[in-house]
Design a protein around this nucleic acid. Structure first.
Lengths: 351, 351
DNA sequence: GTGAAAGCGCTAACAT
DNA sequence: ATGTTAGCGCTTTCAC
């Protein structure tokens, strides 16, 4: 079933069939209808391979994921899919499966550059995708890793200053302030924080938000009460143990962990010390991981709108392709995050 | 940069270049080397679109996922990717995003047939993929939903008796027996079970395994102690509440929930009744969901080797394509599951 | 408004 | 062993 068959069946030339399929030229109504009828009757679908060869456009977007198992990835792809469904684009997925090799080596990304370049080169020259969406597994800057692609690239969940690149990330600082405020509003005054890896952007932004909120409330952040974690559950546990070793009087009444994993580690430590969350110590996280609804008590946290990141990235990439739309020239978009209030912060009137 | 450029540069014909690239004909060593050199120097990559048009093979596998957010999907795709990496195949991903519309309507799949057919038809006729891997979100039979594809299809995590189809699923019954035995070996005699939707295959297979183990141990399954859940957390909670309303003397000492979500719901109910897991009541789940390591205490469960399902599905599909290999003619493969022993079953000597 | 035909980059049959 | 060339299914220029 090719365009020739349709043409013959409809008694027109292949050119005419092409014109009606692509709506690229005026065709007499009756002929157009004849063609449409034949197409409907036969279920003909144009061969996109042939079309691509001719037009040099594949209508496929390469989605290069650092790791599909990383917590943001699947939701981001879900968002991309949702947007793509209303377009004619499709997704060629490459999963770099970086987790094993990169586990918690937050900035060893450079050592992965070869693998990334190779994948990019394949998408670019081999598969001839029209554009690529790079889906990061950490919120960090990957400037310099995307090279040699003269097509639209949007990076989701990470940032990049590279030529042609556009980043879609999420709000960190203001929402952290909001979360801290929520705790402050509950009456907490001795507030501890368990940070993520201190040199990373999200750790810094979140800290900034927290500090701003605390200062604005006329409180101060006791440096003995900020412990450096590494984003993993075990470090949340370790940091909380240190906090617990403080004299009883100086124990924090609330701890702000910079992600859910560390918050849960902290909760483990608190439970281990025979203290209760939130009655004795309140704790909050960040990310709204699936588990935060399953731990007891349910974790108060902030939700990153991953689906919107994917959706927006897809939107941006297609708009860059068409050259029109609000994101066509955009270099950076930030998706708002939102508070998820659950059961881990208690009201405090004492201390 | 096309094959012509390479041919000119190397002083040979395009045919010769093609021969060396595809290793499809003998070429004089020195010429071959000249060609290889030029390719290396220029970084030339054959245009796969043109190649596909000519050969009618795209080297791309359509991965049709019912929902990428469903619990098995991402891991299965991870397994597929891992296998694909060592091949020349790539993945065109279609996400049906069925979760919203299908949520817990375990067998309403038929109403989705149009969407599936459409996606399949696109992959088949439009994108011209060489084969497809259908990634289900439930363990159920989907015979009849895959139609009109005369290419290799392997369905992962679901089963299908359809023409050309091959299923890759996981072991249910024997592992359920093993899990029940683990509980029995710990000394439990009054064992309750919270089933999944009773008419579903996995619920039936798991029950069969459990019954076998109990009988073999010379115990019997008290029908008052089996409650029908629906796989969701809330139903686990509700079933456990019913169980808890039994007279104290007849309270089960262990409950076998047919998945982690219901097990966690049951744990919620037990905690709500001021009883402890596992000291008062032991509980086990199934699936080894990420959360099962985060709840307290950590849940004993069974792990479905999702990555192996994906890996094997990919392997099977490529072998069907080449016509050679252990899975080339296979219609059904079952991946072993394994016990994950954690903290929710306690030793019992009483009762 | 419509059609004939060239050509996208490759492979493979055929000729040499 | 190597080269010439037709042709995969489509789009699009150009002529009518």
């Amino acid at each position: 079933m090719t365009i020739k068959d349709i043409a013959r069946e409809a008694g027109v030339s292949t050119a005419t069939v092409s014109y009606v399929i692509n709506d690229s030229k005026n065709v007499m109504p009756e002929k157009r209808q004849r063609v449409l009828d034949v197409i409907a009757k036969t279920g003909y679908q144009p061969n996109r391979v042939a079309k691509s060869l001719r037009t040099k456009k594949t209508s496929i977007i390469g989605v290069l994921a650092e790791d599909i198992l990383a917590f943001p990835t699947a939701r981001i792809i879900n968002g991309i899919s949702e947007y793509m469904e209303q377009t004619d684009y499709h997704i060629l997925l490459s999963d770099l499966r970086m987790m094993d090799s990169l586990f918690n080596r937050y900035d060893q990304i450079v050592h992965q550059k070869d693998k990334i370049s190779e994948a990019l080169s394949f998408l670019n020259f081999g598969a001839k995708v029209d554009a690529v969406i790079y889906v990061g597994m950490f919120d960090r800057d990957i400037s310099g890793v995307i090279t040699g692609v003269n097509k639209p690239i949007v990076v989701a969940y990470s940032t990049s200053g590279d030529e042609h690149a556009c980043s879609v990330t999420y709000e960190n600082e203001a929402i952290s302030a909001q979360l801290a405020n929520h705790v402050i509003d509950a009456g907490h005054k001795r507030i501890a924080v368990i940070t993520g890896l201190a040199h990373t952007a999200p750790a810094q932004m979140r800290l900034k938000g927290i500090q701003a909120a605390i200062q604005e409330a006329g409180l101060s952040l006791d440096s003995a009460l900020v412990k450096n974690g590494d984003w993993e559950r075990a470090s949340g546990y370790a940091c909380m143990m240190e906090l617990l070793e403080q004299e009883r009087g100086v124990l924090p009444t609330a701890v702000l962990a910079m992600n859910d994993l560390m918050a849960i580690g902290a909760m483990d430590a608190i439970r281990g010390a025979n203290l209760r969350v939130p009655e004795d110590i309140s704790v909050v996280g960040f990310d709204n991981r699936e588990v935060s609804d399953f731990v007891f008590p349910k974790l108060t946290t902030v939700e990153i709108d991953l689906k919107a990141i994917g959706f927006t990235a897809a939107q941006a990439v297609t708009q860059k392709l068409s050259g029109a739309g609000e994101y066509a020239e955009e270099r950076s978009v930030i998706i708002p995050s939102k508070l998820i209030l659950r059961d881990t912060v208690a009201q405090r009137s004492d201390t």
